[in-house]
């Protein structure tokens, strides 16, 4: 199940990225996490074949944010039939960059003693939200006004029964920082910032109306194509 916690960075439940039927018995499920500045790809490898599996290795294709394995895929002992192994693969963001579609698409190759297998997965953008993403207030106001309105995108976050303070502290766990909070005509307005590993800043306004579980999220960014993925991370 999911291990998303109220305080730490959100981690989605693992899903099957490579079904055994497509990989001669090798099943891979996984998720992504970020803890104190380090990104990892948390995997479970399961051997559903009749023979032992060994000599594992992993490689990523170029991707939008230069995600790359920061260590080899270490499976210490051979994987016997019906056996599973959990591995947390550290990642860095200094790999080669190529804009993907969708932006958060990651193409992965995994090999073992049997063959090489390919799959792709979508990573949540918040694994790229850095710990020093709290913009200084004056800079926020100037940047907010400087980014043209055409670069603003609005989204609805539905069915969220948290208070503004609870939302603010939960988001901070995933490196989305509340810069200021105002209340206008009963509506809570949170002004927030985040920064991506490649240095792109995203500014946000989160509008929370009492007794309305649907929040309005407005995102402003000089690279507006990241906005929908930031929204998905919020959601």
């Amino acid at each position: 199940g999911g291990v998303g916690t109220l305080s730490g960075s959100y981690v989605a439940p693992k899903t099957v990225w490579l079904p055994a039927m497509k990989a001669k018995g090798l099943e891979i499920s996984g998720t992504f996490s970020r803890q104190v500045g380090s990104i990892s790809m948390d995997l479970v490898l399961t051997n559903k074949a009749l023979q032992v599996m060994s000599d594992f290795a992993i490689q990523f294709n170029r991707n939008s944010f230069g995600l790359a394995p920061a260590a080899p895929l270490q499976v210490h002992a051979p994987l016997a039939p019906n056996q599973s192994v959990e591995i947390s693969l550290p990642l860095n963001t200094v790999g080669s960059v190529m804009k993907m579609d969708p932006l958060n698409n990651l193409q992965v190759a995994v090999k073992n003693n049997i063959d090489v297998f390919y799959f792709s997965t979508l990573y949540p953008l918040h694994i790229l939200f850095v710990e020093d993403g709290k913009m200084e207030r004056q800079m926020f106001l100037a940047t907010w006004k400087d980014i043209p309105n055409e670069n603003e995108a609005q989204f609805q976050i539905k069915d969220c029964a948290l208070s503004a303070d609870a939302v603010s502290s939960k988001l901070q766990g995933s490196n989305i920082f509340t810069i200021a909070k105002r209340n206008v005509e009963g509506q809570d307005m949170l002004y927030q910032s985040l920064k991506l590993t490649n240095g792109i800043w995203v500014l946000a306004e989160l509008r929370i109306q009492p007794s309305n579980p649907s929040f309005t999220l407005s995102l402003k960014c000089r690279a507006p194509e990241v906005s929908q993925y930031v929204y998905q991370a919020y959601d």
């Binding site: 207030r137 004056q138 106001l141 907010w144 200021a180 105002r182 206008v184 005509e185 509506q187 307005m189 002004y191 306004e205 509008r207 407005s218």
Partner: peptide, 20 residues
């Protein structure tokens, strides 16, 4: 004094966003 100015600026921003 600067902080008060910034506080005021955020209040104006929030106000303007609610009543464009």
């Amino acid at each position: 004094e600067m902080d008060d100015g910034l506080d005021e600026a955020f209040s104006r921003l929030a106000q303007s966003r609610t009543n464009p």
